[in-house]
Amino acid sequence: MNILEVNGKIDFKKLSMNMLIPIAGGAAVGLLANRNSQKQYKKLKQPSFAPPAWVFPVVWTGLYTTMGIARYRASAKAEKDEKRKAAIPYDIQLGLNFLWSFLFFKWGLRGTAFIEMALLFSMITLTTYQFSQIDKTAGVLMLPYIGWVAFALGLNYSIWQLNK
């Protein structure tokens, strides 16, 4: 099975747009909010399970790619009334995803970032459910994102508590 094929074909224009938005958005946030974030991250007191700073851009690039593919698949398979129902939580979670970096790194609001990430986790879960109702593969493609954000939620909380 080719995960890029929907109904036996690939719409490269729509696929590219759905992948470009989270990847380019993540890169823009990286430039605006995460400047010097790797240095900041290294200076914070961290729990024993904290990964090295270089892991984050690698993981996020993969996650943005898979969520873009999931959005493409769900959008391509959705009936007209389903498209909006699935697009709204996806767009909200993507906005929350981008906001988190500003809260945590740029503004140093670690507690607020933790609360915001809990809301993000809820929206990702809703998005995953909506996508899976339309296309099982789209739902499955969102699962690594749920797992990573669950991990990041614990990491955010721990860093907040260790650096009060």
Score class of each variant (00 low, 15 high):
V29P: 05
K39C: 00
Q161K: 14
K39M: 10
L44P: 02
S75Y: 10
P47C: 01
E116M: 01
Y129V: 06
Q130V: 01
W60R: 15
K13N: 10
K77E: 12
K80H: 10
L96N: 01
P52K: 14
V6E: 09
F49E: 02
V140R: 15
K164L: 14
G154C: 11
G147L: 05
G8C: 14
W54T: 00
L126Y: 03
S16K: 04
Y72I: 06
P89A: 06
P89V: 07
E79A: 08
R35S: 15
V59W: 05
A138P: 07
Q40S: 13
I115S: 02
S101W: 01
K77C: 14
A113V: 04
P22M: 08
L103E: 05
W160M: 15
F105Y: 14
A138N: 07
G62Y: 11
Y145Q: 09
W100N: 01
L143N: 04
F12Q: 08
L4R: 07
I92C: 10
K45R: 05
K14V: 03
Q38I: 04
Q46L: 15
N2C: 08
L155K: 09
Q161Y: 07
P52S: 13
A70K: 13
F49M: 10
D81S: 13
L32C: 11
F12N: 05
T112E: 04
Y157G: 05
N97Y: 09
L94N: 08
A50G: 02
W160A: 15
Q93I: 13
G8Y: 13
S16E: 05
V140S: 06
L63D: 13
A150T: 11
L31N: 12
K106D: 03
L155A: 10
Q40H: 09
I159W: 04
W160V: 04
E79K: 11
F56P: 14
L31Q: 14
A138S: 14
D11E: 11
A138Y: 07
N2T: 08
P52Q: 13
K13S: 08
R73Q: 05
K13D: 00
A70R: 12
L20D: 08
P22D: 09
T66M: 15
Y129A: 09
L20C: 15
A113I: 06
I159M: 15
A150V: 04
S37F: 14
P51Y: 11
L153Y: 02
M1N: 00
T127M: 10
A70F: 14
L96G: 02
R35F: 12
T112H: 03
I146H: 07
G8N: 15
S101V: 03
V149D: 01
L32T: 14
Q161C: 00
P57W: 04
L96E: 02
I10H: 02
V29E: 00
T128L: 04
L20R: 08
I146A: 04
G108L: 05
T125L: 14
N97K: 10
N2I: 01
